[in-house]
Design a protein around this nucleic acid. Sequence first.
DNA 1: GTGGTTACTGATCGGTCAGTCACAAAGCAG
DNA 2: CTGCTTTGTGACTGACCGATCAGTAACCAC
Lengths: 188, 188
Amino acid sequence: MTTTGAGFRSTAEEQRERITVAALGVFADKGLHATPVADVATAAGVSPAYVFRLFAGKVGLFVAAVDRCYEQVAQVLSTAVRAGAAEDPAARLDAMTAAYVELIRDRSLIMIQVHAQSACDVPEVRDAVHRGLARVVETVTRDSGADPVAVQRFLAYGQLCHLVVQADLDPADGGWAQTITAGIAHAP
Amino acid sequence: MTTTGAGFRSTAEEQRERITVAALGVFADKGLHATPVADVATAAGVSPAYVFRLFAGKVGLFVAAVDRCYEQVAQVLSTAVRAGAAEDPAARLDAMTAAYVELIRDRSLIMIQVHAQSACDVPEVRDAVHRGLARVVETVTRDSGADPVAVQRFLAYGQLCHLVVQADLDPADGGWAQTITAGIAHAP
DNA sequence: GTGGTTACTGATCGGTCAGTCACAAAGCAG
DNA sequence: CTGCTTTGTGACTGACCGATCAGTAACCAC
């Protein structure tokens, strides 16, 4: 490294970055236990050995991806409310809801959350989920100005969103599916 | 079998039953991919080989457990509304919500649902989730008499319940955790 | 050049686990 | 008893996969 300054990102750090992004996409498909590290390595264009060198085992890699996921989610929600000119808390929450539903288009951010919840028996994953939820809840609360009850409702419908995406629910599946997916656009 | 009559359950069928129950409990801990079939076999007191004889592979076993789970959930909700003397749909939904929250005590039925959602990339699992959701939604809709919007809200908060249980959220974790868990008693 | 650090990989190992198969034991029919 | 069916298992295997390690290539300082 030529210019070693504070905050400079070495090539290794860049790779960690790229691999984390790749991991988010790959883990989103099948989750922690059903995804070989080799798949992530291939997607990132490096060897599996190098992935293990840059991350603390498979779990460390997964945690990095989950952290990144929640980071992005918080950012999306924050951006959504700043972009809109909504004044009252309810309208701001609506803007956030719309933005979250929009996330369905790229399913990765949604799906990896479900996989992370499912892998909460692994302590490191559980901690990452806690960190992520704290971040999201605090972001939503602060940026929307809504009361806790409204924020909780926002989160509940977010979870319903996860179910729709993960189980690939389609209103055409019947009345029960329409009940679940109502208001949640399902664009394939 | 001595008395072969219609509807009679052979010993093999009884074992299938016992193994399914054991599977529900064991899979609830770590999910499909992180649970060896041997663990289920041990819990059921049979050999792994026999489990493979009675079920169509590991996935078949998991699906049986998931089906059983949704069956029990639907039954619990149905019973709750029949037991109470609630007359209007809203009160009946409240009774169901209370019953569902009560399910947290035995975390198995909640946790296996999250694991099943996470394993929806396996077609058989996805189908089982669809079957289960259809059953639950139809039961709730019929027995509560509530409109689809109210039923959807019931489901959304049910999903929030899953998150609380799976991530082992505790109000003591901070304000964010209180926001999420408000109204959902967390009895350890 | 030489010495040192860093980026990266091929080869491999050890363990786990889904699934199979040949076989045993128990019941029952005749 | 003999033969057939059903319940049940021990022993095995083939494949996969997480993790390691020795080693190579590139870059840089001097």
